[in-house]
Amino acid sequence: MPVISFILLGSVVLLPAAALWALRWAASTGQFRCPDKVALLPFDESEPVGVATDQILGNRR
């Protein structure tokens, strides 16, 4: 049997196993808890929520 068959067989077993393990581990360590405050990451004190940026067209005085 060519080497590639071993790689294929191995992958078919190992990939889903690794995926399942990763999901279980991630869930058990709380990585799926996903607070909406993460959505605030693009903002900071200098450019907080509620302040638009880049409003440069049509405002020229």
Partner: peptide
């Protein structure tokens, strides 16, 4: 995902949907 919130000054509608 970065520039729309940044320009309009409003966080993304649903962070769950983005996941």
């Amino acid at each position: 995902y970065y520039f729309i919130p940044k320009v309009i000054g409003r966080p993304i509608h649903s962070y769950y949907l983005s996941v």
